[in-house]
Write a protein that binds this DNA or RNA. Sequence first.
DNA 1: AAAGTGACGGTTA
DNA 2: CTAACCGCCACTT
Length: 98
Amino acid sequence: MHLPADFDAEIWDIVAQIPAGRIATYGQLARLAGMPGYARRVGRAMAAAPAGIPCHRVVNAAGRTAPGWTAQRELLEAEGVRFRRNGCADLTHLIDGF
DNA sequence: AAAGTGACGGTTA
DNA sequence: CTAACCGCCACTT
């Protein structure tokens, strides 16, 4: 299985469909794109995401927000996403059947 | 070519 | 729950 040239764009398209107040994990997005095991590559796609893509709705499998991006948590909380005491987003807001 | 690095993930202790 | 480990993919030293 090999990486499509438009992998980043495919990921961005999926992220663009995540409703406000819901979140998704990197691995989840990789699977939805038909590329299981490419979670790390998805992270790279997020770092290169153009303005307009709600990449703040993407967290890691533990619900932790992106390192160095403190605003992400505030953006999510403003949409109603709850955070646990340990700093991780409440995973009940994960997208399902999508 | 080899080793280091990072918006990751699963398992184990 | 946290931390350590290892596996993972692509990029940079």
